[in-house]
Design a binder for these strands. Structure first.
Lengths: 196, 196
DNA sequence: GCCACAACCGGACTATAGTCCAATTGTCTT
DNA sequence: AAGACAATTGGACTATAGTCCGGTTGTGGC
C-alpha cells in the first residue's frame, strides 16, 4: 500500500503551519460559541489564535472559508451516512424515502449549526454554490430526482428552500415544526412525475 | 429596510431634501448602469450626486435600500398588474394560471434587473425578507396557494427558488430557458393538493 | 418680515474585510 | 552541518460600509 495515499495533503504541510491551523480552528470555535458568529471579527480570531491576519486569510480564504472549515467534520458525517450508511438515508430504500430522509437529516444539521452555515453560505457573494458541500448535496438530490423532467433544477429548488438564510428568516415566523413539515411536503411534490 | 425611508412621507419633505433625493437616484442609476452595481461604492454615489455620505445613508438606510428605491417604480408596475390588471396575472383566472403567470412575469422582472435586485436582497443580512415587496409577493402567493396544507410555507418555498442570488448562480449552469421551465414546473407541483 | 425650532446637511470618524510583501522559519540537498 | 530555497508569517496598508454630530437651512407661527 503506497504511503503517499495516506499523507493528508500531498505536498506536506509544514509543522508550524499545521499548528497554526489547529490554533485558529480552536480559537474560532471558542469565540463563535461564546459571542456568536456574527459578533466575532477576523481580527479577534487571529489575535486569540496568536496568529497574524495574513496567516488567517491565506489559510481559510475568507470568513466563509473559516466557517466551512469548522463545519467540515460534521458535514462529513452526513455525507458518509448517505454514501455508506444504512437506509433510508443510505442506499437500499426507494428514492422518495431517501429524499425524505435527506431533507429531515439536513434540516437537523441546519438547526444545529444555523449561524455557522449561514456564514459559510453568505460571507462572499455566491459562496454557497461554489463550496464542495453544495455540489455534493446537489448531486445526491439530482440522482434521487432523476425521474423528474429536470433533476438538476429540481435539486437546486429543494436546496433553495434549505438555505440557511431562508430558514433563518422563516424560523421566527413559522417555527421548526411547520417548516419541517413544509419541506417534506415540498420534497414529496418535487418527486412526483409530471403525469397530470 | 424600513419602508418609511423609501416612500415619500406624508409629512411634507423639504425642498432641498427632495432635490437631494432625486439627485442621488439619478446619479446612482447612471453609475450602476455604467459600472455595474457591485463596482460602485456609496462614496462614489454621494460624490456624483453632490451630497454628503450622511445624507445618502439617512435617506436610504444602506446600499440595499438604495437599490430598493431604484426598483420601486418597476416593482409597482408588476404589483399593479396583479392587483388591478387583466387576467391571468390579475383577478379572473384560475389560481394555477395566475400562479404560472406570476412566476413568468416575476422571472422576467428578475432577469431585467438581476444585479440591482440581488443587491437589494443581500446587502444586509435578512434584508430580502423584511422589505415590503417581499411581503407583497408572499401574500399574493399564499392566497393563490390557499388550497395547499400550508400556503405560507409553500409561498416562501416558491420565492426561495426566485431569489436573485439563486437565479444568479443557476443562470450560467442551466440557462434561462431551463430555469424558467423548472420554475413553472415547481409552481405547478406546489399547487397540487396532497391527494395521495 | 422675523423667530424659533426641527429637519437636514456633510465630512470626519470608526470598524471590519481582505491584500501585500519584507523578514523569518522549516525542509531538503549535498 | 551548513547553505539554498521555498513556504510561511504577521502586521502595516487599503478600501468600503455605515455612524455621529456641530453647523446650516427651510418652514410654520406670530
Amino acid at each position: 500500500m503506497p504511503l503517499e495515499l495516506l499523507r493528508t495533503p500531498p505536498p506536506k504541510e509544514r509543522v508550524d503551519a499545521a499548528r497554526n491551523r489547529a490554533a485558529v480552528l480552536k480559537a474560532a470555535a471558542r469565540l463563535f460559541a461564546e459571542q456568536g458568529v456574527e459578533a466575532v471579527s477576523m481580527d479577534q480570531v487571529a489575535a486569540a489564535a496568536g496568529v497574524g491576519k495574513g496567516t488567517l486569510f491565506r489559510r481559510f480564504g475568507d470568513k466563509s472559508g473559516l466557517a466551512a472549515a469548522l463545519l467540515d467534520a460534521r458535514e462529513r458525517v452526513l455525507q458518509e451516512a448517505i454514501l455508506h450508511g444504512p437506509p433510508p438515508l443510505g442506499l437500499g430504500a426507494a428514492a422518495d424515502e431517501r429524499l425524505a430522509a435527506f431533507v429531515d437529516a439536513y434540516f437537523d444539521y441546519l438547526l444545529e449549526h444555523l449561524d455557522l452555515i449561514r456564514m459559510s453560505e453568505t460571507a462572499a457573494p455566491g459562496a454557497r454554490y461554489r463550496i464542495g458541500a453544495y455540489r455534493f448535496w446537489h448531486r445526491h438530490l439530482a440522482i434521487l430526482l432523476s425521474a423528474t423532467p429536470d433533476p438538476e433544477h429540481a435539486a437546486h429548488a429543494v436546496l433553495a428552500a434549505l438555505s440557511a438564510e431562508h430558514i433563518t428568516a422563516l424560523l421566527p415566523e413559522l417555527g421548526e415544526k411547520r417548516i419541517r413539515a413544509g419541506l417534506l411536503r415540498l420534497a414529496r411534490s418535487a418527486m412526483q412525475r409530471p403525469g397530470r
